[in-house]
Every structure is written in C-alpha cells, then in structure tokens.
Design a protein around this nucleic acid. Sequence first.
DNA 1: AGGTGTGAACACTTTCACAGCA
DNA 2: TGCTGTGAAAGTGTTCACACCT
Lengths: 219, 219
Amino acid sequence: MKKISEPTVNRLSMYLRVLRQVEREGAATLSSEELARRAGTTAAQVRKDLSVFGTFGTRGRGYAVPELVSALRRILGLERSWRVGLVGAGKIGAALFGYADFRRQGFDIVAVFDVDPAKIGQRWDELVVRPLEELETAAAADALEIIILAVPAEAAQDVADRAVRAGVRGILNFAPVKLNLPETLALKNVNMAMEMEGLSYALASRERAARTTTRKRTA
Amino acid sequence: MKKISEPTVNRLSMYLRVLRQVEREGAATLSSEELARRAGTTAAQVRKDLSVFGTFGTRGRGYAVPELVSALRRILGLERSWRVGLVGAGKIGAALFGYADFRRQGFDIVAVFDVDPAKIGQRWDELVVRPLEELETAAAADALEIIILAVPAEAAQDVADRAVRAGVRGILNFAPVKLNLPETLALKNVNMAMEMEGLSYALASRERAARTTTRKRTA
DNA sequence: AGGTGTGAACACTTTCACAGCA
DNA sequence: TGCTGTGAAAGTGTTCACACCT
C-alpha cells in the first residue's frame, strides 16, 4: 500500500471521533461536508483522505455512519487491543494511567515501572509499580508491544533502548528529547513544552505585528 | 514579517533545547550540521529556518551558542513571562501544574479552576483551587493571557468561549475536541488519544505489510 | 438534484548545490 | 578551507472542479 502521510492519519483519528459522536446522536448518514465542518477541515480533504483506503461513500447520499466507523477502526488498528507498558510513575504517568480514552480504545496498560523506591510496590488499581530493572524481562513475559515513556529527559534514551531490545514495537514519548531509534520502531512524541512555546511565539509575534502597525499608522 | 510555518516554529523550539544542552556542555560554537544531528533534522533545514529571522552564524565557524540562545528566546517570546490559568484540577491538570518545564520557560500558572466541589478550596502550592464561575472575573483581575484546558471534552468549548470573552489570548487545549474560536486567538492542541491512534496505525499497517510480503514470498 | 471520487492545478516545505564570506 | 545563507529544484500536501453515480 502507498505510504500514508501523518496528517492524513491524524485526521482519520479526528473523523472517527466525530463519527462516534454522530452515531450517538442517531444520524445514519453523514456528508463529507458535515464531517469536515465538525472535524475542522474541508470536504475535499475528507474525501481525499478516505479515498486512499477505498470507497466508503454513496454518491448523492454521503457516508453510512456505522460502516465508516468500522472501516476507520480497522484502518487505524483499533479492532484489536494493544498491550502497553507505562514507564514513569510520576504525575504525568499517573495522569496517563487514569486517562480513560486509552483504555476505551483498546490500549491496555498491563505494567507500570519506576526507579523511585518510594513508588515501587505501590498499588495502582490491579497493578503494582515494578522496579525499572524488570522492564526487559517483563516486556517479554507480558508481551508488551507499546511503551509510554513518562520519565525525565535524561533517562528517556536509555529506557527506550532497553525497551527496543526487549521487543517493544512502538513508543509514545512524553520526554522532551529526540529519541534515536531503529527505523523499524514506531515513535510518537508529545512535547507539551514545545506546544507552549508555539503559543508563546504566536502571541509574541502578534504583539510585534500590532506594534509595527501602530507605528506605521502614527508615522 | 513573512508568515512562519508551524513546523518551523516547532523546530526552533527543538533547536533552543539542544542549544541549552550544548551550552551546559561548555561548547561556545556549533555548526548547523551538529545542531541538525542533535535536533533530528538536516543542516540545510536548520539554516533555512534561522535565515527567516536574520543571519546568526559566521561562515567557516558556525553559530555562537549563547547568542543564538538569546535570539531564539527573543523570537519565541520567552524573554518575558506569561500569566497562565489552569482550568481542570483533575489528574492531567495536576500533572501540568507540577510540570517544571513550564515554570522554567516563564509560563507562570497563577490560577487554578475546577467545577468539582471536592476540589474547590484545595491548596495547590501557594494557590487555592477556585470555582469555575470565577473564571471571567479572575481572568480580568489576574490579567490571564493563556489558559490551559484540562477539562473533559464536553466542557471544553464552553470554557474556551468564556475564557475568550474574558480576554484570554491563547489556549493550550488537552481536550480531544476541535475548538471553534475567533481567528485572533492562538490555539494549540495536545491530543494524546490521537497520538496513540497514530502509533496503532503504524503498527497495524506494518503487520499488514509483513503479511503481504510473506504471502508474496510463499506464493 | 445531491454528493462522492479523483486527476489536475496550486501552495507549501524540504532538499540541493553553490556563491561568498571569515 | 570550512561553513553559512540562499535561490532554484524537487517533493509533498491541499484545494479545485467536474465527471459520474444514486
């Protein structure tokens, strides 16, 4: 299959979210126009995105909601569940562990690790926080496929390397560092500091623009 | 000034992070080649990104580290600090409140809000969690410029609207919904579920590819 | 009529390659 | 010589516009 761009996949994810909502609202069918409006994109974009994977719509009618939901779930690999390990039992780790949307989409956190002796042994629901040294053996024993990295920046590369050696195939990285990994691994980064700096840039550059305009106007 | 693309701004953020590390390591100068390697991009890309804002390097020598750090801080609007309100005192809110990188970059969380009576009145460091109804008055009184939205999806649009009316200029949104806002607002979304689904897609499509290859090989 | 699927046009980003300065 | 800054080329992603099906 042709290579699909990351923005396209991200939009599929959005479409699925919208469609589930529409399904709850009871509508049986939905046009690309309406789907686009609710997902924050354009009708042409919606049709192009979907067309890469097949033809799902009916001309003159739109998309059948439950059918498109199933198709997107299949495309995104959400029909099965994934075995996930969480590394880092700090505040971010705790927030992610409690994030209901993960579980709902079939991301089952089946092990939690940390280095801090004060955290090791704590009960988190039905799990017990385990020492980081057990990562390799546990990854194999529990058949972990994905790990969520919620550790400090300095520790992230080391943990990632060990996870890779233990057979993990995907990493969701919350540490603000560029990880060096073999190409065979799937990696996604969530960098909150970067997003915040993006906001800061946007606000600061608007201020600069406003100042310039004022100066021009008064000049 | 010419419009700068979002990927460019994101990379500036990465460059700044790398440069600070290099600064700690004591190097006075850095080539685009080395900066690119550590930031996970290419030398040409680094030079193009920086060239939009001016000329910072010296031919034959590279970039002076402290100078480039200052320049990037200025460009990104990180020389000043920003007054930030946090809405949502749940687990995600707590994680963000404790996220040291925010404070370090000058994002000062000066107010926390929630609807839950059990949370209202709680002490969070030197702050007290306030009822959501106070958002408008507090935003004005505390001159909030940015809010972090860490509320459930259903509540996000309403809170955002109120924040906008109260004069907030930027929103960092953690709720998995497309917010509808006036163009004058700066908005950044952090969607962890979407990232996870991106991982799922990558792993599932690799499996599909592997199966196809095997079938071809055995055919 | 209404709305999809899609080639072709367009816009934007990245990479190349090299002139030119320290 | 070494490495930046930058036009020009290549590559990607988005939008347009319309043929075609229901």
